[in-house]
Nucleic acid binder design. Structure first.
Lengths: 371, 371
DNA sequence: TTGTACGCGTTATCAG
DNA sequence: CTGATAACGCGTACAA
């Protein structure tokens, strides 16, 4: 007759037996998986006590606690999260929607996030928006239906319905990889605008006056847009600007191959730029590889700088100057913020992560005979 | 006292008003978020009808369906996933535990996984084991408590308690990035042993007889171990073996920097190998960069091959021969398998993904005067 | 086609 | 410190 989970565990067996009798055999047989009740009966205690034994061990007598946990192990009981969530009004899950995981920074952030949540017994629900606000909204909605206790997003530009949705659910949320004191929802990350303004400023100080940019799409990517604006504003302060012919945008998010082609085109212009700003690590790698292939000296003929740091950048023949974004720190602190909100602890609301400029060999003064 | 289960809703508005009145303000005010009942009352129908309207729209009359969905939108109701899961005995979530996300293949697999699950309205719970079986077990247990409907793991070597745990929960699971007909649980991925045996065989055919290996740790990494075994077995068939001095293992999982140091050491040996097998993409990149820095010709002086394909490998001065692992395909098909199991559809059980050898310029015949 | 009423497996309240 | 029992919010036989 299939699985009879009866362990009328002797001691207090009387009561257990009676209960069983009263509930009738049907209840017992229909149960496919063991539950709290089965554990309670087997241990000869009430369900409440078992529940307490696992959630607040300190308020249960030693004897019962050990007996109960023995029974749990023996029966191999795994508490039902759905039931617990329903009773607790808390899911123990935090959702995160990243544009993609193929970017090292996001992958690192997701890892850190997950690790940090785990420390407080929380789990991570993960989805990718693929840089599509509508998809982001769908994913968030799905997470809300799952009852996530908090949401972690990227950027501060979202679908118009998203903020209201989040507000109605009354769950904490945070925008990551951005920093903006004016954003009403908390945010954590580097100040993208400032970071690239400073990087540009650094190049200007070296004496550069003609700049090329290998960018990435800014549609639905406020971080990329902010970085571009940072470049523009920094150059503007010196009365400079990027010429259209010194500008290229990849279709892929970060493609070494595309970057090479764009770099080659830009460097064929006349006059040609003496410094190339690349929107991310792999674009910079592509630029340098193409420069080497073209026989250009870096930084003798042209300086190359990037954004994001990957190990390859520092190991290429000419290590590349770049901006280091601490993805894991972003993830870690975002998780901590959300957990603090969930548990109603005090916590700061907005954080800026330093985006540190790492100067390597690929940047230097412009060539003297800058044609 | 307390909550009365009465939905005296006779038909339509009248009833709505009355019901509201009779329930009294207290019940209304104490409810922090609106629920199925509120929607039902506002729409003047029963809770069952609302439930059906969203889950099986086809069996509800057009009029009611439209009215109900209007009310839902108006009230901004989000169904409670915990309650639904409790009633349905299905969580709508699939868990995945990867060793890390910093590996491109795993990141791609996770992305594909998530996308595929979403198509069937499932969500992804993600965690990292950091190559620690105990941690993997903990994460899996946590997911099971969350009531995941399926589990996706990496490799076939797990903690001893894991298989039993999964069996007891009666949920489908699959091992990814491995392929082994003898594994009792389904698996999907490349045959790591075969892939490296073939790659090695290819080098042997080119005439190489002295091989170096830049490996990664095989502790808790059955894939890496299988690949190593593949190399060993392939060489063994020709009476060859890797000399200890031609062997190095990085501490980091994949570090360009470490690879360079190891490569340099190996190439100082005498005699030195004419071909270097690298355990992953970044180790191979490091090897080539160091070779160039040392003034060695690739493949003139030494052939270099890797495992995994990243864009950089193909764009370096000498594009690197490697084995392409289709991470996204692994993720996609794993998701499909799990969903099929959940929905009790027929589906194949074990799949092999081709691990394709991509021959590029970095591999060629050994130098004539192979010293 | 629609409504009623009960069950899902825990937690929390309150009385002992 | 422990036990009895009412929520928790939705799905779904079963009845109408």
């Amino acid at each position: 007759m299939g699985r009879t989970e009866r362990n009328w565990s002797s001691s207090k067996g009387e009561a257990g037996g009676r209960a069983e009798f009263e509930r009738g055999a049907s209840a017992e047989q229909s149960r496919l998986s063991i539950g709290l009740r089965d554990v309670a009966r087997a241990a000869g205690v009430s369900t409440a006590t078992v529940s307490r034994a696992i959630n607040r061990p300190d308020i249960v007598s030693d004897e019962l606690r050990t007996r109960i946990s023995a029974v749990i192990d023996h029966l191999g009981w795994v508490p039902d999260g759905a039931a617990r969530a329903l009773a607790t009004r808390r899911s123990g899950a935090v959702g995160a929607v990243f544009p993609t995981l193929s970017h090292g920074d996001f992958a690192r952030a997701a890892t850190a996030l997950q690790r940090e949540l785990l420390a407080e017994n929380y789990i991570l629900l993960l989805a990718c928006s693929e840089y599509d606000p509508a998809q982001e909204l769908r994913q968030v909605r799905k997470f809300l239906e799952r009852g996530v206790d908090g949401m972690i997003l990227v950027g501060h530009a979202h679908h118009a319905d998203l903020p209201g949705l989040l507000r109605r659910q009354r769950i904490p949320s945070i925008n990551t990889f951005v920093f903006n004191r004016d954003d009403p929802t908390s945010s954590i990350g580097p100040d993208n605008h400032k970071a690239l303004a400073e990087l540009t400023q650094y190049l200007v100080k070296l004496g550069h006056i003609r700049f090329g940019v290998i960018g990435q799409s800014t549609t639905n990517n406020d971080r990329a847009a902010a970085r571009l604006a940072g470049i523009r504003d920094a150059l503007g302060r010196h009365g400079l600007a990027v010429r259209p012919m010194h500008w290229g945008e990849g279709l892929e998010l970060s493609s070494v191959t595309e970057a090479r082609a764009i770099f080659r085109r830009i460097m064929k212009a006349s006059p040609r730029p003496t410094a190339i700003l690349c929107a991310n690590a792999y674009l910079a790698v592509g630029a340098e590889l193409e420069a080497l292939a073209m026989g250009l000296a870096v930084p003798g003929d042209v300086s190359i700088v990037g954004y994001d740091d990957t190990e390859v950048m520092s190991e290429l023949p000419v290590p590349i100057t770049t901006v280091r974004v601490p993805g894991d720190e972003v993830g870690r602190r975002a998780a901590r913020y959300i957990l603090a909100q969930i548990f109603r602890r005090v916590h700061e609301t907005v954080f800026e992560c330093d985006a540190q400029i790492i100067v390597r060999a690929s940047s230097g003064p412009p060539p003297r005979r800058a044609k």
